[in-house]
Design a protein around this nucleic acid. Structure first.
Lengths: 228, 228
DNA sequence: GTAGGTTAAAAAATCGATTATCTTGTCTAA
DNA sequence: TTAGACAAGATAATCGATTTTTTAACCTAC
């Protein structure tokens, strides 16, 4: 496996290294908005919070900085990147381009195993929806669904970039509390996307994906504006 | 400066941290093919080679892994990613998409300062060409030229991805010795690209950029095939 | 009052040593 | 002969302490 994502590919259980565990944990917390944007990280506090020594912690922070979830300034530690309207626009725009491209390719390449995976992922997501479990578990399944959707696009690097953009986008989307009305609409689209994928209707699928990202963008933008 | 590249934005002189210095150095060496693909890195050897302690070295290695120039396997250190035809194709394809997009946007946005920078970058590159300095200095100016070309595209993330793809691409392109014949042709194109950029002919510029990447791809592929 | 300089405290970066894990070679039993 | 168990050496990961740099508070001179 040549180009595994910076994330530990296999979910690191209690067995992984301290460094990889704190990386995963910090990544989740950063994406989930548990740190305030622009905040300077107090390494000693993190050490306590994540129950880990300095060396593995610093290695995780270095990885997150290279990944784009932290900013590193020489000799003055790490901080959480600021949020900005411009950047949100940039991220959304890039998602449009890249996920659109990936979806078209995935529809061209995906086999029947993919179809099954896709149905399963959509089902699990709806399941978590009904259970009203809109917490960390839902987020994970949601990520997983979008990942599955574009998985057979054939480009390792495209997938990698999309993953990175999702993390960045979610920093905005997850700023505020849930919005059930729009959420409903977005959930609808997940199933429609599966439909169109199974029908191999790449053109319509891409249009729907564009719309999906656009709606998500509006949610994220509203949250950002309320948050400032 | 929110989204600085993983690289130390300001060229880290002798003043930067040990970690950032060894990061820059290792990055150059990895891109320049001073390690053999697939090789496992012996950390203690690197410690001597780069004259740094274990901690800053490991932090640099972690960053490089997140950046994609190394592969990290839990509990078994770091290795140089393997090369493969499939990956080269992927990288080239992605370069086509992303640099094409970036160039069109840059031509739409770039101001007269950009025009000046572009002319300057092209001039410096040609200069280094004539001086027959086809070493590390030429490589740097070449990178700088392509960076300048797309700089005003308006997307921080697009620039970031392009930079990453260039590094990956160069791992293939720089496998073997120089090829003066094709090199000449590619150098020509640099100047033509400037021409078209100044004329704001986005369409033709993109076509030329496609051709430029395609030719570079052929060089890289040949090198890769000879290298195996 | 404010710019510039000094210093004590805080934080970041690094070092040297320790611990945990993997690797390799050897041996044993089927 | 070979799969598996084991031990010794090598390597990776982590810890605790030290060094370096930044930050903040205070002082002084204009």
């Amino acid at each position: 496996m040549n180009n595994s994502l910076p994330t530990s590919a296999k979910p690191v259980g209690p067995a992984g290294t301290a460094s990889s565990r704190v990386f995963d944990h910090l990544r989740k917390d950063l994406v989930g908005g548990r740190f305030v944007a622009g905040e300077k990280l107090a390494i000693n506090a993190l050490k306590d919070r994540y129950q880990v020594g300095l060396s593995p912690l610093r290695e995780a922070l270095n990885k997150l900085a290279a990944y784009g979830l932290l900013v590193q300034e020489n000799q003055r530690g790490f901080r959480v990147p600021k949020l900005s309207r411009d950047e949100l626009d940039d991220i959304a725009q890039m998602r449009l381009e890249m996920e659109g491209m990936a979806l078209e390719r995935a529809i061209a390449n995906g086999d029947s195993l993919w179809e099954a995976d896709l149905l399963a992922a959509a089902h699990r997501l709806k399941r978590a929806d009904i259970t009203l479990d809109k917490g960390e578990e839902w987020e994970h399944l949601h990520t997983q669904f979008h990942r599955t959707l574009v998985a057979p696009c054939g480009s390792v690097w495209l997938l990698r970039f999309i993953e990175q953009l999702h993390d960045q986008f979610d920093r905005y989307r997850r700023l505020g509390p849930k919005m059930p009305t729009i959420r409903q609409e977005l959930d609808e689209q997940h199933h429609q996307l599966v439909e169109l994928a199974l029908q191999r209707d790449a053109k319509t699928a891409r249009e729907l994906m564009d719309d999906h990202i656009h709606k998500s963008y509006e949610v994220a933008l509203k949250r950002y504006q309320e948050h400032v």
